[in-house]
Design a protein around this nucleic acid. Structure first.
Lengths: 198, 198
DNA sequence: CGAGGCATGTAAGAGGTTACATGATTGA
DNA sequence: TCAATCATGTAACCTCTTACATGCCTCG
């Protein structure tokens, strides 16, 4: 109601193919992934447990995006009264929303992902830096990725066929991606540390 | 002169430790890295050749940031008249700018880098997607990283000790990072493709 | 009795992108 | 002669972040 005006980009192609931002697609995709109505509050926790390392919108963003999706008819909302808890609004993807996600998923990307990393950027400027500080931050970088790696690996094990934790094969594929990249990061960091110190 | 107002974040700590955005640090760091006055136009080309895959501000951003850096006394500008070409402005880092970068490089980061990837996000939603489309995009993803990889590797070779192309050890370290991550991406993509198709 | 979870926002403003503009010069 | 390079911007707009706010309920 008081929400910010709907962007012109949306309105422009409003009739058929709605063009959304990545964040909007991500959230809409999650709604379809879950396939049952969910509140913004809970959705946030789902994000943390699933695509958190790939995509993590801020709390306010999430609520704003959900409202926008509803405005576009891509998601539906249903108010739920609660006695012991604050009332909440449950969101679900609509048929139009599903179609929208499907189109997005089918469309080729024209620009590849950048490999953004603050630490690597800093390392590039290493000649202007303090040696000790670099080493310290590289260690932190390695440890962070090592932690991420073991988290991914434990998820992988908890989700093995015998366990039937319910993740689909695609979740497992993305998990493998995280593992592969984290492993590469840890190995590189160790090699680089040796070169810096040795 | 007509530039947008300087952000309050800057003004707040204006006297001593100026707090900048990553993009501002990146550009200021590049100025220090080059260590000779350069125009915004040329700086852009340097970005493409160096930190382009890690950090790539848009053209307009670049010019805006340079002006801001000058406003803060972190960079200096010098106008250069040209007969056959448009006049240009050369920018160089100042002593204050150097100190600022140094402080940034020494400071530990509190939040780690996210592993953002549009393709992986899409793959996570694979169950809602068209199988063929996914395969097609995975192939494109792999090819893009393979191309990036061979670019990095050729840079690495061109820069071998015998050649003395002038890159410092830190540039080579970041290059190795790019190689490690690209290799991991290509391998993962191939394995995932087999699983999707096999 | 106080901390933390539930559940949602508003307001302000920053950084950043895209499209558009200019105008001379050089090479194919 | 047509496109590309040089060299810089303005205007519009949009997304996203940060800080702040609210108020009830439950648990220890």
């Amino acid at each position: 109601m008081t929400g910010r005006p709907i962007s012109t980009r949306h309105r422009a192609e409003a009739t058929r193919n709605v063009e959304l931002t990545l964040t909007e697609y991500a959230i809409l995709g999650l709604l379809g992934h879950l396939d049952e109505p969910i509140s913004g509050y809970d959705l946030r926790k789902v994000v943390d447990r699933s695509i958190g390392f790939i995509w993590q919108p801020s709390k306010t963003q999430l609520y704003a995006v959900l409202r926008r999706l509803v405005d576009h008819g891509l998601a539906s909302e249903r108010r739920v009264r609660q006695r012991r808890r604050p009332d909440k609004t449950l969101f679900a993807v609509t048929a139009a929303g599903r179609a929208c996600v499907h189109t997005w998923l089918s469309r080729d990307e024209n620009q590849p992902d950048p490999d953004r990393s603050v630490l690597v950027l800093k390392l590039f400027f290493g000649a202007q830096a303090d040696g000790d500080a670099l080493v310290r931050q590289l260690v932190a970088f390695r440890d962070a990725y090592a932690a991420r790696l073991s988290l991914y690996e434990s998820k992988w094990r908890d989700d093995s066929p015998e366990e039937r934790a319910g993740s689909d094969r695609f979740t497992r594929m993305t998990l493998r991606y995280g593992i592969a990249r984290a492993r590469a990061a840890v190995r590189w960091a160790n090699a680089t540390l040796e070169e810096l110190q040795g």
